[in-house]
Simulated assay, not measured.
Amino acid sequence: MNTADLAPHAHQVLAEATLPDLPNHYRGKVRDNYDLPDGRRILITTDRISAFDRALAAIPFKGQVLTQTARFWFERTGDICPNHVLAYPDPNVVVGQRLEILPVEVVVRGYLAGTTSTSVLTRYRAGERDIYGHRFPDGMRPNERLPVPIITPTTKAFDGGHDEPLTEAEILGRGLLTEQQWRVVSEAALALFARGQVVAAERGLILADTKYEFGTDGDGRIVLADEIHTPDSSRYWFAQSFPERFASGAAPESFDKDFVRNWVVARCDPYRDSIPEIPADVILETAAIYIRAYETITGSTFALPDPAEAPLDRVSRNIAAYLAAHPVG
């Protein structure tokens, strides 16, 4: 799907999802969440795009891509780790089991890559060699494959805070997780990443890195939360062009949100400066990239919504229908 196909739908942006009839609203970087009194959480994935610990813009259909891509992966990894999903009442909406989110984001990396301050490539370029408790040799090249995938955890930033790098020793020493929790989380993360790499390879993709969030339910069971292997949480490269581009020192061909990140980084320091307004053509091209990601990863055609209905009206209508059929207990 190209930008010409998307242009008539450019107005269909779900920048926010404030629904006064729903209780206990919490607005995250990308999602608007509502906690029902019976333990269910309604998560509405908006079209906001977040990077550098801040919102950059709103990209048409991004929320739908994230929700439906995560659905594809949740349905293919439930045998590895239980997840929070209970229902999908709308293309942008997940009803999930409310969890106590663990204070550690588990990032798994298969390559020396990244653009943010917490990425291994950024820190490696700054001269660090002991990173996240792993020792990196001299002479590695950007985007080089690591001998084995590694976990590079960070703190889970709440309320707009910044993620901070962690090591296993720090996680345990600070009491962020118990030894048992860390073992379960790290084993699940590596297994999920391995499954993701296999499925991605079948579709001509390299899953270079990703992040996972876990929580605990009322019984203390560890459950996969948030999203999995989406273009927001993961870095995908095209496998066919990767060897040649790596050999020449060129950046891998990708469709993750580095497209927007790189545009911003070229024009400001995103951690210090105001973000310049992102042009309409960049917004629309980014929407096309997200849709291409969905279609490539899942093998399904992206369904454009009815242009006559505002996204928030549709979301509200579908949630109301779901709650009528599944009332609060």
Rank of each mutant, 00 (worst) to 15 (best):
R145Y: 02
S234Y: 05
T45N: 12
T122F: 00
D273I: 03
G161H: 14
Q181A: 03
A208C: 10
T46S: 10
H11I: 11
Q197E: 05
Q97I: 08
A321V: 04
V13E: 06
W263A: 05
P153L: 10
I289H: 13
G127K: 15
K62E: 00
S300K: 13
D273H: 03
L43D: 03
T118Y: 13
P305Q: 11
P279Q: 03
V93P: 01
R267D: 08
P307Q: 14
I49G: 00
A247N: 02
Y124I: 13
A87M: 05
V30K: 01
A208Y: 11
Q240F: 00
R109E: 06
A201D: 05
S254W: 01
E244M: 07
A57F: 04
D79P: 01
H9S: 02
R183S: 03
L102T: 04
H11K: 14
A70S: 15
F259K: 06
D21S: 13
A201M: 04
D53F: 03
E187L: 11
G215P: 07
P147S: 02
I319A: 02
P252V: 07
G215R: 06
H84G: 10
T45R: 09
A247F: 02
F74A: 04
L146G: 06
S233H: 07
W182Y: 00
L172F: 01
A266L: 11
V223W: 09
A191V: 10
P270G: 10
R54N: 12
D269K: 04
L146T: 04
F74D: 01
S316T: 13
I101H: 02
A280S: 11
G173L: 09
R31H: 11
Y124N: 13
W73Y: 02
T230F: 05
S119P: 07
E202F: 09
P311V: 05
A208R: 07
T210M: 04
P243K: 15
R317Q: 03
R245V: 08
Y88R: 12
S117L: 00
D313A: 09
R40G: 12
V282K: 10
M1F: 13
N143L: 06
Y290R: 00
T155L: 12
A208D: 12
P307D: 14
N92Y: 01
E295R: 04
D256H: 01
L177S: 07
H162Y: 06
W263R: 08
R267L: 12
L192N: 08
Y271R: 12
E277S: 14
T167K: 09
I275S: 05
R235S: 01
W182D: 00
L166G: 12
R98Q: 15
A239G: 11
G78Y: 00
T116D: 15
S274I: 02
H162F: 10
V148H: 15
A191W: 12
I278C: 09
L172T: 04
V94E: 07
P276D: 05
P82D: 15
A293S: 15
